[in-house]
Design a protein around this nucleic acid. Structure first.
Lengths: 129, 129
DNA sequence: ATCCACCTTCCAACTATTGGAAGGTCAAAT
DNA sequence: ATTTGACCTTCCAATAGTTGGAAGGTGGAT
């Protein structure tokens, strides 16, 4: 299976698969005589795992840890949960930050006439609040 | 006023001020004979404006546009509002994405025992859902 | 004269992904 | 047999934003 086929099957494009290999997130692929990367069926599952972890917002480092836990048949679910929990906290923080930005900005935008005159509460607010 | 003093007054550190200058977000500072950057009082206001725009989540490009609108005494508040509105939309999208991640992850974490056994719904979910 | 805190520039790291350039390979059609 | 197009290879760079260090110059006080 070529990298292009794997990309199609996994939903991660070839460029990114090579990149993931280069940073050690995935192991080095075996090669054909001519130097093409060669993959097995199980690699599809592997990359899909990564894609899903990324889809939950895990960083590449966290994803790497999750992969290791996945591989480790004698893992403690505690360790997985801990990882998830800390990511949950991060997400909550970021959401709260952005939510606050959003609220502020919405209030400002509501107060702005949005016409052809220069007066603007948004600018006023940025000038000094 | 040196860059260090400006940094203290504006809340943007010296390194970043130099960087903002290098990318053209702020104009090139005048220099003393020995080559030190030299700033005026009004530069504090300027940098604070930038800091606030960043605090609302505007990108550096958007911030640059806001600076231009601020400078432009014959601006249309419409243009400011448009900028704000598109940023609001971006924020809402990102918040929604992250909120969905958060909800999914919370459900998985709740279902995970978090003990010393390997069974884990989080891993199960990543394997295939 | 020396010392410390500050300033200068340049280069690199971080996170994650994408893009291009320059070149090799495979399979099918001519 | 050769050409074409789609694929593969590596390497280097850009995106966004900030931070870090190295190597060296300057200011002011002791």
């Amino acid at each position: 299976m070529t990298i292009g086929e794997l990309a199609k099957q996994s939903g991660i494009n070839a460029k990114l698969i090579r990149h993931y290999e280069s940073i050690g997130l995935i192991p080095k692929a075996s090669r054909t005589e001519s130097g093409y990367r060669s993959y097995k069926e199980t690699d599809i599952q592997f990359l899909r795992f990564i894609k899903r972890a990324r889809g939950l917002g895990f960083s590449l480092k966290e994803t790497k840890k999750l992969v290791n836990l996945w591989r480790n048949k004698s893992r403690n679910s505690k360790d997985v949960k801990k990882l998830a929990q800390s990511h949950i906290t991060e997400l909550e923080q970021k959401i709260n930050e952005m939510q606050e930005m959003l609220t502020n900005l919405k209030n400002l935008a509501k107060a702005c006439n949005g016409d052809s005159r220069p007066h603007c509460p948004i600018i006023k607010n940025l000038e000094s609040f």
